[in-house]
């Protein structure tokens, strides 16, 4: 177990009302518990507004969690002190969605890639240059690009630079926040393949955040679905697609537009999606999905569904399964 999230919450305060006196909270992440194994590619899927990116940002420390524990290699990051951040960030890196805005347009590639090395005081000037060359090689770009600005590069090439920047400090864990959704399909495959081979080569663990379930099918070892700041379902990928349980998972799977008959037959029977994701300020009582759920019952409005383990690795958060199966908690022993 390299990373364990224990009931992580991230609330953003919003003030409004007369003289901004009323205080409310956007509950972007509202109690997520997960365990990610070393070397695995963990897929986190959700619609916009589900809190998946906020969770990723909280893990790498861009946001400080409101409550809960982030145990990374046995150490709780949630209580980290200012000075520890540097030590931790060497091990935890992030690749952002849009390389067009995550790379500073006024810095050359060399400046961009060298900064993390300088921050962490790694190597002499000469050693750093060698390291940069090696990094570009790793992401399959020519060395000459060191002196270019991001604008001279295509979208795919820029994302490779963003990946190289994350790799510069030799992390063990990388959060990939929609790393390919800004790219064309013909380029997407190559970038994902690169990420996979880098993971193998450097023994990396990924938290792969995306809204693309078809991509997850081919990339992740386990998949989690998030909705309104909470988990709906977590399962190993093959099980997840073979035997989806949560009504939201089914709704998502059935709405994916696919390109062949063969795939069409793999989708659960069509349930017409209704409604939209509610605001995380006024989340519905009980289960957050009940307002859109075709199978909502009375209890769904009253109680939050608990985590139910359908089998050892497949968990679902839904009242439909709450009483029928074993209620379990994670076995945290690694």
């Amino acid at each position: 177990m390299i990373l364990r999230l224990d009931d992580i919450k991230k609330y953003f305060p919003v003030r409004h009302g007369f003289l901004q006196r009323k205080m409310e909270y956007v509950k972007a992440v509202d109690g997520v518990s997960l365990a990610i194994k070393r070397g695995e590619i963990f897929g986190l899927v959700g619609e916009s507004g589900s809190g998946k990116s906020t969770l990723g940002y909280t893990v790498v420390g861009i946001h400080r969690s409101t409550a809960g524990k982030i145990i990374f290699k046995g150490e709780d990051l949630a209580t980290r002190q200012h000075m520890d951040v540097r030590a931790i960030s060497r091990k935890l890196q992030i690749v952002f969605q849009d390389p067009g805005s995550s790379l500073n347009p006024k810095r050359t590639i060399r400046q961009t890639l060298e900064l993390p090395l300088k921050v962490h005081r790694l190597g002499t000037r000469r050693e750093r240059l060698g390291k940069l060359r090696e990094l570009l090689q790793k992401v399959e770009l020519p060395e000459e690009y060191l002196h270019n600005y991001p604008r001279a590069l295509s979208g795919g090439q820029r994302q490779r630079i963003a990946i190289a920047r994350a790799l510069a400090v030799e992390p063990e864990f990388i959060v990939l926040d929609e790393p390919t959704s800004a790219l064309d399909v013909s380029v997407q495959g190559k970038v994902v393949r690169l990420l996979l081979s880098l993971a193998k080569e450097h023994d990396l663990t990924y938290l792969f955040i995306t809204h693309d379930l078809s991509l997850m099918r081919n990339v992740a070892s386990r998949v989690a679905i998030m909705y309104l700041g909470k988990l709906c379902e977590v399962a190993p990928t093959s099980e997840f697609f073979k035997n989806p349980l949560h009504p939201y998972t089914k709704m998502l799977l059935s709405s994916i537009p696919v390109v062949s008959e063969e795939e069409e037959s793999l989708k659960p029977e069509r349930s017409v999606p209704k409604g939209e994701i509610p605001s995380p300020v006024n989340r519905p009582s009980g289960c957050g999905f009940r307002t859109r759920c075709p199978l909502a019952m009375d209890i769904c409005a009253q109680e939050e569904p608990r985590r139910t383990l359908v089998n050892e690795e497949h968990e679902v958060h839904c009242h439909l399964f709450n009483n029928s199966r074993i209620k379990g908690d994670y076995d945290w022993n690694d």
Binding site: V185, V192, L196, S214, L215, N218, S260, E262, E263, L266
Partner: peptide
């Protein structure tokens, strides 16, 4: 990428 899980294109 396909739902059939043929690997990353």
């Amino acid at each position: 990428p396909k739902l059939t899980g043929e690997g990353v294109p």
